[in-house]
Design a binder for these strands. Structure first.
Lengths: 347, 347
DNA sequence: CGGATGCGTGCATACGATTGCATGCATTTC
DNA sequence: GAAATGCATGCAATCGTATGCACGCATCCG
């Protein structure tokens, strides 16, 4: 049977009713045969089960998940908001989340925010419109109210990356970047004997502010000055790191070390340094943050603070499914995934 | 009003009925106010429109896309199957697809196949269960029947990456890798004067076979032998490239050049070479395929055949939406995105 | 032997939206 | 002034599935 839509012929999909008709049972019976695990665990005779399965096989019937979602209020989908899938830092996190989701027979919607508040809010509204069972957010700007609104208005479980998220009902996975940033700065000062250290941050994000704060605290503790022109602003991209580095290397007194708030910007630093004829680490040392895969293969190999996005993804996903499946119902839990300084060649 | 599910309180979502009640109109009127673009373009009085919008605002109502999908047979979702999101080659392709989708107000489901036939088939079944309006596949093993079954059974438009997909109703975006592989091999022979060239392929995939075939054809044309031990097998991962390279560099007569079927394996080659004390390109040259971002920043910088995944993603997405929106209804079209040899340091 | 039990199945409704058709009212037309 | 028109709205069916409830029949027990 063919309908027509948009000028293209549209198939009439095979439904439970079709199966029911051929198997000579009611549609409800088919439903019960196919979802025996349901709450209303009613007994069905073996012959009926047999017959239904035979017809299902014969017709190649597959249940319609849209209908199931509408009826059952369970969508078997989760949504994940990250800053940018083309940032390698998120690759392994996303991949791990997908793997865990697949094990649970869940589909995953992925949305990029590009660190934009507007995009983050748009994502949250999207969740209210298209219900999902769970949400993983890596927010940079969302505040308590934004998250609370989502929780109030949707039935989704919510977990988040980052300690700055402060809603009592969301599980958080975070790296203690404050501490490690501080330690790494001390390491640059004490082990590498740097005094003029610049920082490339992203001041309009919480992560950026926290890391910049930790850096300045460490500098202050060592009684070292941080001149204003040593505080550069980037946006987590290679290009912004390159721009910042060019500015730094054009100063009268160039820094002897640069701490970039993430690896992509550190990569930009290396690119700019090479281009301007500076030798790393001899002329200027560079430290990054994240330990993206290519950090270990660049030229020079990048010294950086390692994060473990795959583990983070796993913790996020596991926490989420614990809530979705009702295993966990209490207040939001905290999972710390430690960071670690990896010393290579660039500093 | 609170129901309880799974031990957690569940919100009763705000529906059109709620809006209708407060606005003192019928639910159908609300629907018509909110979707004026629909086929049944009936006039609604300005006051009613006003009133409905006010209540919508007041309640913060958002239409439920699941219900809309079930009724309207349009899901406003597309699904995309790639080999592996953590392979940088796919990053920009995925990102571009997401961007185009967002412009069209579509959500994107992403699934990894890891080049496994079983996973590819599982994806196709998934589409029959959870209807979507469009599908982008990057298949390595799917055959005509698999794709035909999907098209028969779902109403989704289908576009694919790769010229080997041969269904008349699917648009294909592809790189002419056969030709460029051949040319690059000639370049290694004629411009770089290599005679002992090894190839790291993935013989159980179509892409792998095609590139290996082109390589061997070029070698044959130059009357150069390809000993069996120079045909290594990998699986597109860094580790497999590393293994293959170790095997090659352990031979009595090592090759003077190695052509890897993709960049990740080429990266593995460089890692292995460095580890075994071979200098690239002096001792052994390495050529990759893809031009992943880090290729230009490695040590030595990787000579490789560039593909343009972002463009491919854009073409895929645009072709898909042309079909979804009914702009395009004819037989499957072909879009070639050319490749280009990028000569850097490794060969 | 009659009523209670339990097993297997079907009927009907609900999930939240879209949409064809009918309806009521005001306005126009001859 | 009656009939015809048109505008604004409501009624009810529908999408495909899940599930509370009722029902028929066989078995069991006193």
């Amino acid at each position: 049977m063919l309908k027509v839509r948009n000028g293209r012929p549209a198939r009439t999909p095979i439904t439970m009713r079709d199966v029911a008709r051929l198997a000579q049972v009611s549609q409800s019976t088919v439903s019960r045969v196919l979802s025996p695990s349901n709450a209303t665990s009613v007994p069905i005779s073996p012959e009926t089960v047999q017959r239904v399965y035979a017809v299902v096989e014969q017709l190649g019937y597959h249940p319609n998940l849209t209908a199931r979602s509408l009826r059952g209020q369970k969508t078997h989908m989760i949504a994940m908001m990250i800053a940018d899938i083309s940032n390698p830092y998120y690759q392994f996190m996303v991949r791990k989340v997908q793997d865990v989701a697949q094990r649970h027979h869940y589909d995953v919607l992925i949305v990029n925010s590009d660190h934009r508040y507007e995009a983050e809010q748009h994502f949250m509204d999207g969740i209210i419109r298209r219900p999902v069972d769970g949400v993983i957010i890596c927010p940079y700007h969302l505040n308590y109210n934004d998250i609370d609104k989502l929780i109030e208005r949707s039935n989704a479980a919510v977990v988040a990356l980052g300690q700055h998220v402060n809603h009592p009902q969301v599980d958080r996975v975070f790296a203690d970047d404050d501490k490690v940033t501080c330690e790494t700065t001390h390491w640059l000062i004490q082990q590498r004997h740097h005094q003029r250290i610049a920082f490339i941050g992203v001041p309009d994000t919480d992560v950026g502010r926290r890391r910049a704060g930790a850096f300045k605290r460490a500098m202050h503790e060592a009684s070292l000055p941080v001149p204003a022109e040593y505080e550069q602003v980037g946006d987590f991209t290679i290009e912004s790191g390159e721009r910042a580095m060019r500015a730094l290397l054009s100063l009268k007194q160039t820094p002897t070390a640069v701490f970039a708030c993430n690896d992509l910007m550190a990569v930009g630093c290396l690119v700019a340094a090479e281009d301007m004829g500076f030798h790393v680490p001899a002329d200027v040392a560079v430290v990054g943050f994240d330990n993206i895969p290519e950090a270990s293969r660049m030229c020079p190999k990048l010294t950086t603070v390692a994060q473990y996005p795959s583990e983070m993804g796993e913790k996020l996903a596991e926490a989420l499914f614990a809530r979705i499946e009702g295993t966990e119902v209490g207040p939001g839990r905290l999972f710390e995934v430690p960071c670690k300084l990896i010393v290579r060649e660039s500093a």
